[in-house]
């Protein structure tokens, strides 16, 4: 049940203890950054920043599982991209022939680099989601949504899906076991038979989930769900002064980054010919600032936790 390790489990450290809204803002910021910049140095710094966050929240082990999964997807993306997008001028490898349907085949240096950047970006996004899953208590997320005045029915659907994720994983594990006992070979054989047999797990999973949903609906009726009247939430999230400070800082920081992106910072134009990778000196200051601000925020979180204690 390795997969179950990837859901939120409370841990004793200041990142886990700190306010959910703040954590959401920090991750949102990193997420936006990995979208607006594409220069490898910028992405590298973001990557480093995430690792720092993971280090302090003490969830290396879980993140490594994400990494392993990411590796497979990356390899796949890498090759697909190289084959299907042979643009650019620096040709490394070429088969030129006159087959009319397929045409020639070439690999360019530009595609190679752009594929690497895509992988790096994908990994970043994946890691951010992973960290989000690990360090943010679903309950807190729900409270944040309530605070943002999102209709309760929508909030409830989100709660439900968050909590049923582990249940569905358990179901999948059980179906795997049952099918194996019925003689379905999932351990031996070549990649394709294994893949084909694994697909046979999906339909049962759907059937089971549907059956579960009927029982859920019954139980929801028994809990008087969705009757008319104004709902008063018992628990709401409390945001303290130091949290507000970080949130406001994050908002300004994000605006600043978007401004920079418009000014052409962190942009790496690959096609048609790959330019030099080095940046203008001003941009190194920006990178440094990004690193610094990450440490600053983690420091503030730590201080906030100390004060609370």
């Amino acid at each position: 049940m390795k997969i179950l390790q990837l859901t939120y489990k409370p841990k004793e450290n200041f990142i886990y203890r700190s306010n959910g809204v703040v954590k959401i803002f920090i991750l949102l910021n990193l997420f936006m950054q990995s979208f607006i910049f594409n220069h490898p140095f910028y992405l590298g710094i973001i990557f480093f920043n995430i690792l720092i966050l993971v280090r302090f929240s003490n969830c290396w082990k879980e993140i490594l599982i994400y990494f392993r999964f990411m590796l497979i997807i990356s390899l796949f993306t890498f090759f697909i991209n190289i084959i299907l997008y042979p643009e650019g001028t620096t040709i490394i490898f070429q088969i030129s022939n006159d087959l009319q349907l397929i045409g020639g085949f070439k690999i360019t240096f530009e595609t190679l680099i752009s594929s690497l950047i895509i992988i790096l970006r994908l990994t970043l996004i994946f890691l951010i989601f992973g960290t989000f899953n690990l360090i943010i208590n679903p309950d807190e997320l729900i409270q944040v949504l309530v605070k943002l005045k999102i209709p309760h029915s929508i909030v409830f659907i989100i709660t439900l899906s968050l909590n049923f994720f582990p249940l569905i994983l358990k179901d999948l594990e059980k179906i795997r076991e049952i099918q194996q006992c019925k003689g379905l070979e999932l351990e031996k054989g070549n990649f394709f038979t294994k893949f084909k047999n694994n697909v046979k797990l999906i339909l049962p999973l759907l059937t089971n989930s549907l059956e579960r949903s009927i029982q859920n609906a019954e139980a929801l009726e028994a809990r008087a769900f969705d009757i008319k009247g104004k709902r008063e939430f018992y628990r709401t999230i409390r945001i303290r002064f130091s949290d507000y400070f970080i949130i406001i800082f994050m908002i300004f920081y994000l605006i600043f980054q978007i401004y920079l992106a418009f000014q052409g910072f962190g942009e790496y134009i690959i096609y048609p010919t790959l330019p030099k990778i080095f940046l203008a000196s001003l941009e190194y200051y920006v990178l440094f600032f990004s690193l610094f601000s990450n440490f600053l925020i983690i420091g503030l979180l730590y201080l906030g936790d100390k004060i609370k204690k």
Binding site: D139, R223, A224, I227, K230
Partner: peptide, 19 residues
């Protein structure tokens, strides 16, 4: 028949439902 993430929210859920 359990919908929430922890015990306390589970107990509260029905109470909030009946407003």
């Amino acid at each position: 028949q359990l919908f929430m993430n922890n015990v306390e929210s589970e107990l509260i859920f029905g109470l909030e439902n009946i407003k």
